[in-house]
Design a protein around this nucleic acid. Structure first.
Length: 490
RNA sequence: CGGGGCGUGGCUCAGCCUGGUAGAGCGCUCGAUUUGGGAUCGAGAGGUCGGAUGUUCGAAUCAUCUCGCCCCGACCA
């Protein structure tokens, strides 16, 4: 195993793949397009889940679980939805194997063909709305605010670990409301939850916006999204929230009786974030030395490395370190004390850097004599020697500072890589260099498509709350009232 | 679906062209010395060379077929 990671500047995707492997986050499985998320990677995902789940609960949602399999007839019901997902569906056609009569192994039993094929869920609107038919009768049943944590399968032609895998983990919220306004409010509220999570937990600034019709979720009236900028200048859609109108209610014949005793179709939303966020987290902050984790999502926030020559030294160091560890734990900090003598300190330093542990403390005999400790921070790679007395409070403050610093750094990067562009020449030139491009667009699918064909850039979103501004479309020269965000994306 | 690459101890790979029955580094086990930025030495363990068929006295090596994974592109709610 080579020691150094590939450089981001030389080969970004190789750097990414190696980092995922070397930081012990995940590996490719024996199954094409699928990944094995390793304990360290899963620990980060669990912290994301916990934070998000708390936010969902705080906004009134409850968790539930729906089946992995979607009968084909369900999926067909909402036409646009069905069309959108059709070409990436895994299909179960049989329910039994049997011994191969012509030799070894097993074969699909031709006598065990399913009456109706089952689709492995690419998303759950169909099963869920089929279920909601039984749950919703009266306005009193609304709003219905449900979330599920699940796996889904989308048979992608080309996969990339965490960013696009055939199977991935996610959460999907599915809500039903009495009015359109309420459903739109929910859609926007959950987008806000995602943005808050991205910024406050992942330390990753995001743009909130609305997708153009061509980028919209199949079956939605409107798709809202958060878009983040990765260090290589490409955009990553990090979360989506959909206003589904009455499309699914109508397709699945879900109705409720309002206060005036009239029958109406409820209004729906759905919203999700996935293990793709792991990819976002990696690409937003990490450097050529490895992962850089924001303290709020780091499975290990502080690692303490004792530097010792023999058992007696270690005992003395441990005696001084243990109360610090206890104090830190009581302050809610996750600490690892790595006294393993299998590796030397230098190895450990490099290893924890690779894994993105925000703060490292090194304590040796010299420190015991001087009453000091060496404190190293991952985000800046700087080290300083501080007094052991009262170190706990300083570390808590340092973790906050690191969280803020990582966010500020990412924000600065995004600001420096966001460009207002007004001419087509400038657009073509800038798109090659990467970053977000704010440009005028005439609002047509045709223009959007041509720009994509010529430059590989897509409209990431129409930003929410952007100022109205008269201008001319960067491609067609036609009038436009608003700038939209273009980028090449993952 | 096109183009490329790869499949040999746990990992990374050499050996293949020019067939002669398997090697290195890392890791692992044991021991000793080490420990403030990826330690050193010594002794060990570990492989039906992705699979099948064929050619041959003999196949990791040649031929045919096949399976799988990765990368690039097309595609991508």
């Amino acid at each position: 195993m080579s020691k150094a990671l590939p450089k981001r500047s030389e080969n970004y995707s190789e750097w990414y793949n190696e980092l995922v492997k070397r930081a012990d986050l995940a590996e490719h499985s024996a199954v094409k397009g699928c990944m094995v998320i390793k304990p360290y990677g899963f620990a980060i995902w669990e912290k994301m889940q916990r934070a998000l789940d708390d936010m969902f609960k705080a906004t009134g949602h409850q968790n539930a679980y729906f089946p992995l399999f979607v009968p084909k007839s369900f999926l067909e019901k909402e036409e646009e939805h069905a069309e959108g997902f059709a070409k990436e569906c895994a299909v179960v056609t049989h329910y039994r194997l049997k011994a191969n009569p012509d030799g070894k192994g097993l074969i699909v039993d031709p006598d065990a063909k399913l009456e109706e094929e089952l689709i492995v869920r690419p998303t759950s609107e169909a099963v869920i709305w089929n279920t909601y038919k039984g749950w919703i009768q009266s306005w009193r049943d609304l709003p219905l605010l449900i979330n599920q944590w699940a796996n889904v399968v989308r048979w992608e032609m080309r996969t990339r670990i965490f960013l696009r895998t055939a199977e991935f983990l996610w959460q999907e919220g599915h809500t039903a409301h009495a009015t359109s306004e309420e459903a739109i409010e929910e859609t926007e509220k959950m987008l806000g939850v995602y943005a808050t999570f991205a910024e406050e937990w992942m330390a990753m600034p995001v743009l909130k916006g609305v997708k153009t019709p061509s980028e919209r979720f199949a079956g939605a009236v409107d798709t809202y999204c958060i878009e983040a900028l990765m260090q290589d200048g490409k955009a990553l859609q990090s979360g989506t929230s959909h206003f589904l109108g009455q499309n699914f209610a109508k397709s699945f014949d879900v109705k409720f009786v309002n206060k005036e005793n009239q029958t109406e179709f409820p209004w729906a939303t759905s919203w999700g974030v996935s293990t793709r966020l792991m990819g976002a987290l990696i690409m937003a902050h990490s450097d050529d030395n490895g992962l850089v984790l924001p303290p709020r999502l780091a499975p290990i926030q502080v690692v303490i490395v004792p530097i010792y020559r023999n058992e007696e030294d270690l005992a003395k160091i441990s005696e001084r370190a243990n109360p610090i560890i206890e104090k830190l734990k009581s302050l809610g900090v996750s600490v690892k004390y790595d006294f393993d003598d299998k590796f030397k300190p230098g190895y450990k330093f490099a290893e924890y850097e690779l894994r993105g542990v925000p703060v490292r403390l090194a304590i040796g005999m010299r420190d015991l004599e001087n009453g000091t400790v060496e404190v190293a921070r991952r985000d800046t790679l700087s080290k300083e020697t501080l007094a052991l007395d009262g170190i706990e409070d300083k570390i808590v403050a340092l973790l906050d500072e690191i969280q803020t610093n990582i966010y500020q750094k990412a924000l600065k990067f995004r600001e420096e890589n966001t460009f207002r562009v007004d001419t087509w020449e400038e657009f073509q030139e800038q798109i090659e260099k990467g970053g977000f491009i704010l440009a005028h667009w005439n609002g047509t699918d045709d223009t959007e498509e041509k720009i994509k064909a010529e430059t590989k850039a897509t409209i990431r979103c129409i930003p929410i709350g952007a100022a109205e501004e008269s201008g001319t479309c960067v491609y067609s020269g036609e009038p436009s009232q608003k700038r939209v965000v273009f980028a090449r994306s993952y």
